[in-house]
Design a protein around this nucleic acid. Structure first.
Lengths: 212, 212
DNA sequence: CTCTAACATGTTAGTGACTAACCTAAGGGG
DNA sequence: CCCCTTAGGTTAGTCACTAACATGTTAGAG
């Protein structure tokens, strides 16, 4: 297999540190160049050169150029957050709370970085496409977490639709937030989006969102 | 611009027919080869050769290899279907009915082709990513159609979430249908998916879908 | 009827993402 | 001390996609 020689998680401390340093160097340089010159105008060669490695090393850390812009480590914590919710809570609320709580951290720490990354993704078709794949992965993750937390795994379509709708609402809230340059409270927007699901889908009144 | 010399919609009957024949030849050969050998294992050269043209001609008709697998002409009719719905119908029902009615046609005519195409997309990461972009486009289209049909354009987030949730439900129904090899009625599944939105998101009962 | 503009297609020669096969150097355990 | 593991390099590909320019064919103006 082509990617069998990926730098792995094991090894002595000093090797792990080196790996992590190289990886971080590649990703920060990638993001900087993408923001400076645009995603398409930046070549993998340039990124590798800026990080002081060869282009092959880049591909040992990131399977595609897109991944250097999209990869982060927020996903693994979602499952944990779901597991922490009370077992009798409805699935949709578990998701809602897990997501809003999860966003909490990066929201006030990495705020500016997050915003510029969202804008980059927004204006780059290749990256927008990449997020679709991420959403599929997130959906799978959430479904697993929910069944692990007690949801009926037999009712497949129901779970898929629930999770997909929840992710769609979250995505729209995040996009809306990025579109308005980070004005407003992201968690509030996400709650608004979930409220749209709750209130608008049942009877379809033309107005009535909870806040601006 | 690079794509300024795309075969256009104008011209005499003669030219238009030739264009359409070439285009159809390219797309059917592309789909056949993708299904036979897999998407990645098929080169654009092969497709072009099978259609009896050069690889440049291929790119004059399809901007990317993915498009040869994904492009169809179902989208334009969605807007029409929305416009046909009664003006006072809730947005979510407009979408639901437009989509189920729209699926009606291709459902019993192209059924087998549709199924194999869905399976192809399902097992090809590059194509799954492509569908994400299509969904963005569909979302824009639907929002335009809904505002044209009387929805309040000022309440941006609400419309985005509504449409995104509707598209998510539809997508999940279609995937579910493809996963179960086309057993069951697709329109019924879509209605089930919309019912999940309606009944499960409001109070989050653990059971209660309308049919299998 | 001829000349020309428009247009579908071809040819050739790129660029750049990504892969495969093989090589090197350095630390760590036997 | 040897050797194995592992981070990284080198080189030489393949293939999607682009740019620039060439060619034949047809439609329409004169």
């Amino acid at each position: 297999m082509s990617r069998a020689d990926l730098p792995r998680a094991a090894g002595s401390d000093w090797r792990r540190e080196k790996r992590e340093r190289t990886r971080a160097l590649l990703q920060t340089n990638a993001l900087r160049l993408f923001l400076e010159k645009g995603f398409d105008a930046t070549t993998v060669e340039e990124i590798a050169a800026a990080a002081g490695v060869s282009h092959m090393t880049f591909f040992r850390y990131f399977p595609t150029k897109e991944d250097a812009a999209l990869q982060d480590d927020y996903d693994p914590m979602i499952a944990d957050l779901i597991a922490e919710r009370p077992a009798d809570e409805p699935a949709i609320d578990k998701i809602r709370h897990a997501l809003t709580n999860g966003l909490h951290h990066l929201y006030d720490s990495d705020r500016e970085v997050l915003l510029s990354r969202l804008r980059l993704v927004h204006r780059t078709p290749a990256l927008r496409a990449g997020t679709g794949q991420r959403r599929d992965a997130d959906q799978k993750l959430l479904i697993q977490a929910l069944t692990a937390a007690g949801s009926d795994p037999g009712d497949e379509l129901r779970l898929r639709v629930l999770v997909a709708a929840a992710l769609a609402a979250t995505t729209e809230a995040i996009r809306y937030w990025a579109d308005s340059d980070g004005d407003g409270d992201l968690r509030q927007l996400i709650n608004d989006a979930f409220d749209v699901l709750r209130t608008e889908l049942t009877q379809g009144r033309p107005g009535g969102r909870s806040s601006a």
